[in-house]
Amino acid sequence: MSDGTAGASGAGDSLRPADVETPLRRFVADFAESRLAVVGFALLSLIVLIAFFAPLIAPQNPYDLLEVNILDSMLPPGETGGAGYVHLLGTDDQGRDMLSAIFYGMRLSLTVGVTSALLSMAVGTTIGLVAAFAGGRVDSFVMRVVDIQISFPTILIALILLVALGRGVDRTILALVVIQWAYYARTVRGAAIVERGKEYMEAGLCLALPRYRLLFNHLLINCMPPLLVVFTVLIAQAVALEATLSFLGLGLPITQPSLGLLIANGYDYLLGGRYWISVFPGVALLLTLVSVNLVGDQLRDVFNPRLRR
């Protein structure tokens, strides 16, 4: 019993610190209740680590022309290339190692997905909070716009925007933000309207706290659970949409191949039986989306008060 570390609760010595149920511990325990969610979380962590350390762990830098040998092109999985190492997942038409290309592609896909999800969360949350607090005409106007925008197929909005903006990482992110802010605005507004009526907000109003403090330090914190769930769902949506757009040749430029572009690149060879150029990036995309969704589903259950025992 290592003591003297905590004891901030001032509980008797029969209650060891490990037994105290902090919100974080309860959250972890609730989350771990589903095996599948834990597997999803582990997988997601692995994917994030791979994406982060891609330049360090990839067998080659697939975009360094000195490392790529055209003589190695289209090697099937498991073949040894000219550089003397085994290409576990084969090589593409230009002799790039697919494993390395996938690591770099994941890095790009996740960067675009997470950045656009974060940015649209910031934009959507602010608009949703303002709508909830302003009420009246502002509120109904903003929510009408949100309703109409959400009813439109995302691919159509993305198409109109990207035709105007052209290809590029920044433009794709911008298009995704324009598409996704509405979901955050709707979620936050719903939560904020419920929270606004609660006593702690009345107390804050009586204390004449500044508006921004009320909004961001008190109201927003209590709207976080549904926001987090929407965040995971929309990261998955952003990654999938970016892949789709890049596959169509509208998203990222050819010089920055995300998973979607890798799949599109391999598509030409799929019918000829060279499945690995397209299928392995596809599997990477699949694993990314499934793991994000598994984590998101479990988060929704954990945060759902109706499922609380």
Partner: peptide, 14 residues
Amino acid sequence: FSLPSFWIALMLIM
């Protein structure tokens, strides 16, 4: 719901 449709289409072709 969660898989992009182009991916499913490719798998069907495969």
